[in-house]
Design a binder for these strands. Structure first.
Lengths: 127, 127, 127, 127
DNA sequence: GTGGTCTAGACCACG
DNA sequence: GTGGTCTAGACCACG
């Protein structure tokens, strides 16, 4: 599992870390029940502070992506990630809206937009 | 043009303001050449800081959505918003990726995702 | 609003802080919409680290007790605390169970237990 | 006697173990004088560390729930658990307070709270 | 060894 | 000034 962080980015490191791990799960690089490195080892591997890793892990745990098991350590949720509910869909819509609004302004037609989404979806299937 | 801000959101107010204005343009509530309120009046209307409005306007100007004339005041770019280029598409992909990754994890299938995007696109056409 | 912390206690400081604030709300010392001190000022008042206060605030925010408003700062949720739902009641039962089990073992009869609860309830009404 | 542990819980395993055994005594699944498995066998039965079981047993012994004989092994206190004293009642009140405070905030009225307690009490009588 | 908690201190974005 | 983020470092409970 490769973690790719951009230290120049505006986006907080812990947030990038969250996204990288979610992408790993989407890509099936990380399977349900699979172990993740400990806070400390991941922090030292990436060269960041353990609190930063911890913050990412806590949020991932809270959203049901991972579990912190007293014996097995940090693992991808063996029962799988909680499925999308109305709350998630609403929140997703809220995040998509400004992306689509700007695309409309910039004359990205719906077809091109869909094509882009389709490509990304494909990257998580065939990879 | 109605501005809708959430002061409890994590998202900075100036960012929300930018998005609201872009949505206004996408929805054709704001047409090319149309005037926008001055920094001062918008700030007092919404009850936010001058700096916040200014920051939003500066960024919108920088991205070609609006022009700021010393005399004519603030207007939606009469030549229209600059069309999407490779840079924009790359950046768009970067923003869509984590949304789609999480959706994949949560078993939102591609069809549902596309349906959601289509609904949003429609809201900028018919609306 | 008086904050009462026991630095010798096993219970984490941030947890004690959470409880003190919830008790303040229950006692109506803190009313909906009322402002709370900033992270920094509360930390320096109590003589603890600002991260510790922040952790308490974040959790209180997450559970709907307080809001972090970009203009008003930290305030008690003006809409009131979210009412108990099934999840809360289940969790409450889980916490009460061991207390009652030990009380049963120690021959605290139900009447005495209820009396104690009643006294505590009263302390949040009349004060 | 069934031991029910949650390895994903925040609550330490030894603490959960303590509570499970106290509940067993409250439920009269475990009677005064009755034997408990040895540290070693319980640990291997549940699949946890020796130290964890030992820590739980030591604390139960310290609080008078069990006796640890070198030869007879571990038994539920034949003289019964020490009755509640002022210290216990004070400590009980301290633990109940935050539960009731949060319940008050969430509009769990006293009647519902009492009903819940009554149900739990009943589960230790009839069960 | 591992996560949880806490401190001290720093920088930054926001308003 | 305020919250958010990040670091470095420390101690402790847990298993």
């Amino acid at each position: 599992m490769l973690i790719n962080l951009d230290f120049e980015s505006q986006e907080p490191i812990y947030q990038q870390l969250i996204e990288q791990i979610i992408e790993g799960i989407a890509r099936k690089d990380l399977l349900p029940g699979e172990g993740l490195p400990s806070v400390r080892s991941l922090a030292s591997d990436i060269g960041i502070n353990l609190h930063t890793v911890n913050k990412a892990y806590q949020q991932l745990k809270h959203e049901g992506f991972i579990l912190i098991h007293r014996q097995k350590g940090v693992v991808v949720n063996p029962d799988g990630v909680p499925k999308a509910d109305v709350t998630y869909m609403t929140q997703l819509e809220k995040k998509l809206k400004p992306l689509i609004a700007e695309s409309v302004c910039r004359e990205v037609d719906e077809e091109s937009f869909m094509k882009l989404c389709n490509d990304i979806y494909k990257s998580y299937r065939g990879g």
